[in-house]
């Protein structure tokens, strides 16, 4: 860790032992850990002292993981990683739809969790103050009529004078599409650049985030004008 203040991870998990092992592993990697056994206490903890990341089990008792993710998203756009016991069900997608950025499945290795957090951290570091990517133009005009302007340097998207609220992952996704300058970017490329996932990354991550991004920026999300799907190829930011 380069920053003097260790980044804080809020671990929301109702299994005592998994929580304990995550605390040990994350502390070994230099993170500070705040534990919560229930969704309610996680939300309370976030309101009291915002963490930098949240790790949350979707199968929580009481307030379930999805509700917890939505409640935390209301408060903050910190990276949220879902812990799921299953990969093939709707659990993961539901977690992502609720606002999570990435997921790991049980049984996971602490290494894997740390890698996920690092990838999200790297993205944070590329925001204000970080060296600009060579290809990234300072301002991208997405829609002159609507006045939709992306400013990767500042880390904001504006519609007119108003700032459009995006999570870090959504913002990063939009920046990658903008950098391509209207060319098609494949899901695999987006997975690698935005999430730092390798060949076996889950392309559903990209689709869910594109869907969420469209809900926030498109006038009509069902018939997108800006973020266009190129069937079988990937996504493309339509030129103004």
């Amino acid at each position: 860790m380069t920053s003097p203040e260790p980044a804080t991870v809020l671990v929301v998990e109702d299994d005592d032992n998994i929580r304990a092992v995550l605390r040990m592993g994350l502390e070994d990697e230099g993170y500070a850990v705040v534990e919560a056994a229930t969704g309610e206490s996680a939300v309370a903890s976030m309101s009291a002292a915002p963490a930098d990341f949240m790790l949350v089990d979707v199968m929580l008792g009481g307030m379930n993981g999805l509700t917890c993710i939505r409640a935390v998203r209301e408060l903050s756009d910190i990276p949220i990683v879902v812990i799921s016991a299953r990969t093939d069900t709707d659990d993961v997608i539901a977690g992502l739809e609720a606002g999570a950025d990435d997921y790991v499945t049980k049984p996971f290795m602490v290494r894997e969790v740390v890698a996920r957090l690092r990838a999200l951290r790297r993205r944070l570091d590329r925001r204000p103050g970080a060296a600009p990517a060579a290809t990234a133009p300072p301002l991208v005009l997405i829609d002159p009529v609507d006045g939709l302007v992306l400013s990767p340097e500042e880390g904001v998207l504006r519609r007119g004078d108003l700032r459009v609220h995006l999570t870090t992952t959504e913002f990063r996704l939009l920046c990658e599409l903008a950098e391509a300058g209207g060319r098609v970017v494949s899901r695999q490329e987006l997975l690698e650049r935005v999430w730092d996932h390798g060949f076996y990354g889950d392309e559903r991550l990209v689709d869910v985030h594109v869907r969420r991004l469209r809900l926030k920026i498109e006038p009509e999300p069902a018939t997108p004008r800006y973020v266009v799907t190129e069937r079988g190829l990937g996504y493309r930011l339509a030129p103004p």
């Binding site: 299994d15 032992n17 998994i18 304990a20 092992v21 995550l22 040990m24 592993g25 070994d28 199968m59 016991a85 299953r86 049980k106 049984p107 996971f108 290795m109 602490v110 290494r111």
Partner: peptide, 16 residues
């Protein structure tokens, strides 16, 4: 599901 939880802790603690 129930087997995954102890397995997760086991694998992670051995990794630690």
């Amino acid at each position: 599901h129930e087997l995954r939880s102890p397995l997760t802790t086991l694998a992670a603690s051995i990794e630690l």
